[in-house]
Design a protein around this nucleic acid. Structure first.
Lengths: 209, 209
DNA sequence: ATATAATTGTGACCAAAGTCACAGTACGGT
DNA sequence: ACCGTACTGTGACTTTGGTCACAATTATAT
């Protein structure tokens, strides 16, 4: 699908033209790091295909999943970072193979005044990310680990569109800033409760979950 | 201090004029709720005096302090909420007596395109609030309660500009989504370690903290 | 095919945090 | 001065989650 076709419902024609003339298409493989914490933000990504995973890294290297960026979405952090050339606070990794439009950050300021649809897109994105960060905070502050795990699995399934999740217990533990043994035990309990099925490097969520 | 004087370094003259013609000044007392979770956002507040406390409320009523809004600052949530008239995700309470400019949300969209200094103010605010939410997430995900408590106390002292904090253990427990007994014990330990002094409804932070 | 590495399962133990119960203390109002 | 209430301190216990140790299983590479 070309850019004009894809965005004709959310961006005005002049903006689509501007995007076509300024943006480059980037393609990265699953697992590739798009943006490392601390790096300076150089482009605004708009996803054409695939899923980005946004995580927060602790000084000691521990990690926590914040949210996913889906097709036709962008990452709010880059908007605000790029306005003043701040370094990134987060890490963005390709959760699947990913194709995205890379828009140079220099146009941000001008587009914001010039294109109403860009302004709404930016504001909508920022709002969604705020909500997701608040959701992460809710989970951490108010939920126990077993509830967080169920939520994590459901989100993962929703993001990938499949109840079959390919991941090891170790990876889950990392993304939830917990430890492998604890996750293994909680998963086993969920399996005993007929909420899911466990395989090696794979989990099948059942409708009971 | 009048508005023109106060904002002459961050807002352009036309914007200051616009603010003067559109904004009302509101005065609220310590403890007053400016915005309740779920309420629709009707104004953008810019603080002239005092401190706002922004908290997140759980379904079950549990609470968590997110951040403070200081003089000359605004709250990013309202920016993004008001663009599309969403209900508020957070509660805003006057931590001290507060005086603020109430700007009707209708002007937001136009000002964003029309005044470069308003655009930077909005973006800077959003960026700061993102950072603060990320900080809250770091605390919850990676720090133990005793470290969080120390951090909480330092923030409180910084916000109010005094090492003498007027608060009960119960209130601290609420704002940290913990329980009173645990907070009492941790505070006692900090007192034994000569990091602070405990009084009734009052805590004095020592320089050793 | 076999060795090696990665993954999973589990028991035992520990540490952190929450809960319960209750006592003692300080404060505010009459 | 006295009473009722809010606040603080603390011991005992429970739950949750993290750590250690080690076994069993499955995948991968040579």
């Amino acid at each position: 699908m070309n850019i004009a076709e894809r965005f004709k419902n959310i961006f005005e024609p002049e903006l689509i033209q501007a995007i076509e003339s300024m943006a480059e298409i980037s393609i990265v493989k699953e697992g590739d790091v798009i943006l490392e914490a601390g790096q300076t933000v150089r482009i605004i990504p708009i996803l054409l295909k695939g899923i980005l995973k946004i995580t927060r890294i602790d000084d000691s290297g521990k990690e926590l999943l914040l949210y996913y960026v889906h097709t036709n979405e962008s990452c709010a952090m880059t908007f605000t970072c790029c306005m003043q050339q701040y370094p990134s606070e987060i890490r963005a990794v390709a959760e699947t193979d990913v194709e995205f439009l890379a828009i140079p950050i220099g146009v941000m300021d001008e587009w914001l005044s010039r294109f109403p649809t860009w302004k709404s897109f930016v504001m909508r994105t920022i709002r969604n990310r705020f909500d997701e960060l608040l959701n992460a905070i809710d989970q951490l502050a108010f939920q126990k680990l077993d509830e967080r795990l169920v939520n994590y699995l459901k989100e993962k399934a929703r993001a990938t569109g499949s109840p079959l999740i390919n991941i090891s217990h170790e990876e889950i533990a990392t993304e939830m800033a917990s430890s492998r043994e604890v996750i293994s035990r909680l998963l086993k309990k969920l399996e005993n409760d007929k909420k899911l099925l466990l395989y090696r490097n794979q989990i099948r969520l059942l409708k009971e979950l």
